[in-house]
Structures are given as structure tokens and as C-alpha cells.
Design a protein around this nucleic acid. Structure first.
Lengths: 237, 237
DNA sequence: TGCGAATAAAATATCGATATTATTTGCAAG
DNA sequence: CTTGCAAATAATATCGATATTTTATTCGCA
């Protein structure tokens, strides 16, 4: 069930083992199960996932272009390291791209877009209401949050913008998860989402953009803060 | 010699056959030697480049994340098709990213940046002066043009922004080459480059941004025009 | 005792062959 | 003549083994 939710985020079916390896590795890197900087030895991954070497190599190659693993010729692979600077960089890029996509989406959005957005918002809000007891549906929340943000920009007609936005969203998620920011509890994200939702439906571009900017900015700040602590503690090794 | 120029655009040395396959394929796709939409059969590529199947598979996997080949599970690969809409999209994205990078770069640029920029501009201008007889150093011009634009944004401290800018530059180059826009001859790009160069050194951000926007916009328009004709002629098949 | 070269061990990169899956061709029935 | 099924063909995906390269270790020598 949880797997279905996770896989919903990807497009097509899983026709090949290489595709499977790609998704498994990707998820494990973004979730932090494979630590930043970790050397990815083929044999280790072979036993971990119970797959052959060839599909794993193919997956690593793809992930290197996604900038999730560093691929150094004849010297193996490693999970791309993380740093405070990178977190800021990603936050800024996400702001730039997401805001631009939002602008276009609000301009172009039709009835179908509104419907999808309302549905996504509703699902997210319902979960956020039930989550106040600190239940650990963090993964489920991540998925719905993801889908809400996606619904916001769904009417953007620039495929490249959407692609890059997605890339930054995923990279950002990696940092969010590492710092285990219980953002859900600490600050009221739910209110920000509602403001975003209403501004979008009102076609109030400037309002929506402002909210989005502070929304992403706050998330980034939280990440940078907890990560900076984490970093100081670990970087000395 | 030509190969050195081309390879100068990439970073490290070529330690592995898979890396070689990646660069060869990449170059052949961007240059148009492998036509858009072409099915990339392994056997065909094997004989074309005289390489084994494994390195080629790895290269294709990486290129799929670069969005230069489409990788459909169990159904092989094809060169990503081209379209007028995509050309516009890429042009707009390039504008967005390149302008942002330029802003930051001009803000941060130090002496070393100025030196590098001046050198790149000088090399490009010298070539542009000798090219008026229609000599076909188009490849050489592409390289110098590339390096000039890179030098402009070299002082930008956002790695992600630079990475995405590069991606868009390459995608844009694919369209430029397809439509064989003899941009060098048709409009005076040299003047635009000089304006860009001077505005950057004067730290006149707004001027530089304006010039850059029209510069990219005109290139995109030229591409869209020639491509639209090309498209109407071929798309009927 | 410390340094460097030679050797041993481990890991990656690559090849050749096989199994699996898509596609095409041919044939028969409607 | 078209449609649907079935065998044949071609292509991809995967495995197991080998060659090459890097990394670690040991031994000899200053």
C-alpha cells in the first residue's frame, strides 16, 4: 500500500529490472537510507537489492545525470554529498523555478486545473487534520504535499520548466528528509497551503507568488538550520 | 585538432569506454548526425562506433536523464524528437536561467572573472572578424561562442543554476545546428556580443540583462523560423 | 624506523552468450 | 479483402565470466 503511494509519483509501469533498480536506488538516496558520500560498491548493491550487476550499473548511470550519484571513471560511484551551501542553492533554485511555473499555471489554468487542485488540496488538508497526534505518516504526507504542489503548477505549459522544477523539488526533499524537519508540527504549513490554494483559485498571481516564496524560503531556512547543526557535528570526521 | 576543441568543452579525461560512448553519442545527437526520432538500435551503434554493447547501454542511460534520448523499457531507445514548441520552450528557459546567472555573476565578478571574460571575448571577436568570407569554421565558432557565454556567468556561485543553464545551452545548440542558422552572417551577432561584454564590465546589470534577453530571443526566433519551415516540410511523413 | 617499489587483493569495466520480450510475417477464417 | 491468430524473427535485457585498473599490503632497502 505504501509502495503504491510511492510509485504513484513515477510515470509508467516498471517493465524492466533496470527501471526497478533505478527507482529503488533513487528512493534510498532521497530518503537517506544510503548516506551522502557513501561509496556505492556494485557487490554491496547486488546483495542489498538482490539484482544483477548490469541493471544496477544502468541505474547508477542514470542517477549520475540526475546528480544523485557521482560517477568517477574507473573509481566507482558515491552518493552525492550534501552541504549547507547546496541546501541554500537548491532552495533558491526551487524558488525561482516554482514561482515561474506558478505564474504561468495560474495564467493558463482552466476548470480541469481548478478541479485537480481542489482535490489535491482537500486530500492534503484532511491528512494534516488527522496528523496532529504526531502519527508517523510522514511518508504519506510527503506524497500528498508533493501532489498538491504539482497540482498548483499543472497548468504550466512549459515542459522544461516543469521538469526542472521537479528536479529541484526532489533534491529539496532529500534535505527535508535528512534533517527530519517535522515541519508539519513546528510551523503551520497547513495555513500556508490554504493561502496558496486560495490565491491560486482567485487568480491572484502576485499574492500566490509571495506566499510561495515565503513558503519555500521557510522550508529552506528550517532545513539549513537543522542541517547546519548536523553538519558541524559530522563534518569533523 | 578539431577533436581537442570539442573535448575541451567537457571536464575530465576519458578514463572509460562508457565515457567515450557517452560523449560520442551526445555529440552526434546535438550535431544532428543522429536524426531526431531515430531509433537507436544497439547493434547499429555497436558497428557505428566500434564499441561493445555494455558501454553503449550505459551511455544511453545517462543520455536519457539528460533528455537527449528517450528510453522506453523493453522497447528500445530513440533520439528525442524536436518540435517548434520545444524550441520556444527551450528558448524561454534559457532566457530565464541565463539572465539570472548573469545577474549574479556581474554582482560577484572579481578581477579574475574580468580577465577570463576579456580573453574569451577577444578570441571570439578575432574569429568573427576572419569569418566574413563564409569559411566553415562553424564548429570552432560554436566553441568560442560557448566559452564566451560561459565566461559571462563564470562568477555565478550557484552550481545548480550553472548546471541547468548549461543544459539549456546544449539543448538550444541542438536546434541552432539543425536549422543551420548562419547566424554569424545574417545578423550582426558580433555587435550583440560586444554590447554584452561592455555592459558586463561596466557592471550595468540591467543593460546586460536586456541585451542578453534580446540576444537569446533573436536566436530563438531565427531557430523557430527556419525550423517551422523545415517542420512543415517533414512532419507530413 | 621510515620510505618506496613490488606484489596481492579488491573493485570496476567490458565482453560474449542466453533468456525474455516485442515485432513482423504468413496463413487461415470470416 | 480484411481481420485475427500463430509462428518466426529481431531486438532488448540480463547474466556469468574475464580483463583491466585501482587500492591495500608487504617486503626490501636506506
Amino acid at each position: 500500500m505504501a509502495e503504491i503511494l510511492v510509485n504513484m509519483r513515477y510515470d509508467g509501469p516498471e517493465r524492466t529490472i533496470a527501471e526497478r533498480a533505478y527507482r529503488l536506488l533513487r528512493e534510498d538516496i532521497i530518503s537517506g537510507a544510503l548516506a551522502p558520500g557513501l561509496k556505492l560498491k556494485i557487490e554491496m548493491l547486488r546483495t542489498r537489492y538482490g539484482l544483477g550487476a548490469a541493471p544496477i550499473r544502468e541505474a547508477l548511470a542514470r542517477l549520475s545525470s540526475d546528480h544523485l550519484v557521482k560517477l568517477e571513471g574507473q573509481r566507482g560511484c558515491e552518493v552525492v554529498p550534501m552541504s549547507v551551501g547546496d541546501a541554500r542553492d537548491i532552495g533558491n533554485m526551487r524558488k525561482l523555478l516554482e514561482v515561474e511555473a506558478l505564474r504561468i499555471s495560474i495564467d493558463n489554468g482552466d476548470d480541469e486545473w481548478e478541479n485537480g487542485l481542489a482535490a489535491a488540496f482537500h486530500r492534503l488538508e484532511r491528512l494534516e487534520r488527522t496528523i496532529d497526534q504526531g502519527i508517523d505518516d510522514l511518508a504519506a504526507w510527503e506524497t500528498l504535499n508533493h501532489q498538491f504542489h504539482k497540482a498548483l503548477v499543472a497548468a504550466c505549459d512549459s515542459q522544461w520548466l516543469l521538469r526542472m522544477r521537479q528536479l529541484m523539488f526532489d533534491q529539496h526533499e532529500r534535505y527535508r528528509r535528512l534533517s527530519r524537519v517535522k515541519t508539519v508540527a513546528t510551523r503551520d504549513i497547513s495555513l500556508e497551503h490554504r493561502a496558496l490554494f486560495e490565491a491560486a483559485l482567485d487568480r491572484d498571481v502576485e499574492k500566490a507568488v509571495t506566499v510561495m516564496e515565503t513558503h519555500i524560503g521557510r522550508t529552506t531556512d528550517a532545513v539549513v538550520h537543522t542541517f547546519a547543526r548536523h553538519d558541524l557535528a559530522e563534518q569533523t570526521s
